[in-house]
Design a binder for these strands. Structure first.
Length: 261
DNA sequence: AGGACGCCCTGTTCGC
DNA sequence: TGCGAACAGGGCGTCC
C-alpha cells in the first residue's frame, strides 16, 4: 500500500543510494509498467545521464536528470526501489533496471505490475499532466480547507481524491479519520471549521509519525488503527469492535464508537 | 460530479 | 494436506 509515507521513504532511499551515478543502460523486463515510453525511448532519454535529486509529490517520486528531463516512478500498491552498489542479478519481479557505469544498479520492483515508470520534463509538468492536487505533506491549512471543504460527497472520498489532495490512499485516509474522530462517510462540506482543523492536524501528525516510522506499521504507535484493520479487532482507543465496510470496491475500516456519524 | 464497478496484476490468505 | 477461489488496492475508464 505505498501511499505518501511509503513513497517518501522511497524518495529518501533513492537520494541516499542513487544520485550522481552515470546511467549506462536501462533494461526493461516488462514494458507494461512503462507509460508513454518504449524500452528504446526510455533508454535513449536516460543514457549517460544522472539522477540529480529526488523529489516527491503525492504518491509520485520524480528524479530529475542532469541537463534536462526526469524519471517518474509510481509504486501502485507493491512497488519499491532496490539499489545495488555492485553487479547483482535482477531481483524477482524486477521490471526496470537502471544500470550504472560503476557496475551497480537501481531496480524498480513491482510484483503486481500496477506501478508506472516514465519520463517527464519536470515534476511540475507531471503534476499538471496528472491533475494532482497539492501534496498532503506540505499543503497549508488554508489550501487544505479550500480543496477539501467545498467538496461534495464523503470526506473519505475527498481525502483520497488525488486531484483534490495528493498522497493519501485507503489506509492513511482511514487512519487520519480515526485520529480525528470523524466518520468516513461524513459529508465533506458539512464539516465545521473546527472539525476541518482537527482533520488537518491529524493528517499532519499521522504523516509525520508514519514517515518517522519508515512507513512500517509495526513501528507505529499502539494508538493507530493501521494495525487493527481486520473486522472485529479491538479499537485501540475504546476497545470496541472495529468495523469494516465497502466503499468503491475498497475495504474501509473505522470505529463506530470513536467516529460517530 | 460523485460513486459504484470492472479491469489490471499476482502473492497471500481463506475455505472446503 | 492441497488446491482453487477470494482478496488486496491505486488509478483509470465507464456508466448512471
Amino acid at each position: 500500500m505505498p501511499e505518501l509515507p511509503d513513497v517518501e521513504c522511497q524518495r529518501r532511499y533513492l537520494a541516499a543510494t542513487s544520485l550522481h551515478r552515470t546511467i549506462e543502460r536501462v533494461r526493461v523486463f516488462d514494458d507494461r509498467v512503462l507509460e508513454g515510453e518504449t524500452p528504446a525511448t526510455l533508454g535513449r532519454k536516460v543514457h549517460a545521464r544522472r539522477f540529480e535529486s529526488s523529489r516527491r509529490h503525492g504518491k509520485w517520486l520524480v528524479a530529475p536528470l542532469d541537463r534536462r528531463g526526469a524519471v517518474g516512478f509510481h509504486f501502485g500498491m507493491t512497488g519499491r526501489l532496490e539499489s545495488h552498489r555492485a553487479p547483482a542479478p535482477p531481483p524477482a519481479h524486477g521490471q526496470v533496471r537502471f544500470r550504472f557505469r560503476d557496475g551497480g544498479a537501481l531496480d524498480y520492483v513491482a510484483p503486481r505490475k500496477l506501478g508506472v515508470v516514465r519520463t517527464a520534463e519536470s515534476l511540475v509538468e507531471l503534476v499538471e499532466e496528472k491533475s494532482l492536487g497539492p501534496d498532503a505533506w506540505t499543503v497549508s491549512y488554508d489550501e487544505f480547507r479550500a480543496r477539501i471543504g467545498p467538496k461534495r460527497g464523503t470526506i473519505k472520498g475527498a481525502l483520497t481524491d488525488q486531484s483534490a489532495l495528493a498522497g493519501l490512499g485507503n489506509v492513511y485516509a482511514d487512519e487520519i479519520l480515526f485520529q480525528a474522530g470523524i466518520h468516513p462517510r461524513a459529508a465533506a462540506s458539512h464539516l465545521s471549521s473546527d472539525r476541518l482543523r482537527t482533520l488537518f492536524s491529524a493528517m499532519h501528525d499521522v504523516l509525520r509519525t508514519a514517515v518517522a516510522a519508515r512507513a512500517d506499521p509495526e513501528s507505529m504507535p499502539d494508538s493507530y488503527l493501521l494495525r487493527r484493520r481486520s473486522p472485529g479487532e479491538p479499537c485501540p482507543r475504546c476497545s470496541g469492535s472495529v468495523e469494516t465496510y465497502q466503499v468503491g470496491g475498497r475495504r474501509g475500516c473505522y470505529c463506530p464508537r470513536c467516529q460517530p456519524r
